[in-house]
């Protein structure tokens, strides 16, 4: 089974790219690590032709306004349906929002895409609350370990491991209590601390609520 890992983030292989970190973690403990390519650093049509020679594709992407980033869409438009059976494709989505139910639309889209491309669908793994991984990797050791376990199990079984997927996907939805807590956190401003820190560093704190297009 010859698998290629695609990083669908517009940030490509930058050190600030969470999808790249996900990709590297996924292959880290494999006996024969898969090749990783970045969509952002390739010509979409050429990359689409290149991946056609692989038995399987794992596409790792960030969530951009409830769907894939524009560059991933462009790449998808260049893919041709497989002419033979036996090829497979799977997806790993990472996003800043806590609850992975927000990936619901794109998950269904990707399943439909696999079918239209004549690929077996390996599933879509969702990880929420992932935006800060590149900034504070030590705080996300557990997530990074799970990604490596996902990769090891994939190399062995050519499938996503249900137990690992479940751990990564949790929480799927927010309980009423958690929503209440979040409202409280936002009301007292605790949820803004991280943003405010960067706004101050950039000397634009007073402009944070600007409406420049009115």
């Amino acid at each position: 089974m010859n698998t290629i890992i695609l990083n669908g983030s517009p940030k490509g292989n930058s050190e600030k790219c969470n999808s790249q970190i996900f990709a590297e973690q996924f292959v880290k403990d494999m006996k024969n690590p898969c090749e990783i390519k970045c969509i952002a650093q390739n010509v979409p049509k050429e990359l689409a032709q290149y991946v056609a020679d692989f038995d399987a594709i794992i596409l790792i992407l960030p969530l951009y306004i409830h769907a894939m980033p524009g560059i991933v869409m462009k790449f998808i438009e260049e893919l041709e349906p497989a002419t033979s059976k036996g090829k497979s494709i799977g997806f790993i989505i990472q996003a800043g929002f806590i609850e992975t139910a927000q990936h619901k639309y794109v998950g269904r889209y990707l399943e439909n895409l696999a079918e239209r491309l004549n690929y077996s669908y390996l599933g879509t793994v969702s990880k929420g609350e992932a935006a800060a991984i590149y900034m504070y990797p030590k705080m996300f050791k557990k997530v990074l370990k799970l990604l490596s376990e996902l990769g090891v199990a994939y190399e062995k079984n050519h499938a996503f491991d249900d137990e690992v997927v479940k751990k990564l996907t949790n929480p799927y939805e927010l309980s009423k209590f958690k929503l209440w807590l979040l409202r409280l956190v936002n009301k007292v401003g605790l949820g803004n601390i991280g943003w405010h820190k960067v706004l101050r560093e950039n000397d634009v704190m007073d402009k944070r609520l600007d409406r420049p297009f009115l």
Binding site: A67, M68, P69, M73, K74, E77, N112, L113, R116
Partner: peptide, 19 residues
Amino acid sequence: TFGGYSSQLKKALDRNISL
């Protein structure tokens, strides 16, 4: 396109998060 927007529209909308 496969149930979504064209990449032309999608990339324009991605840039609207400034709003």
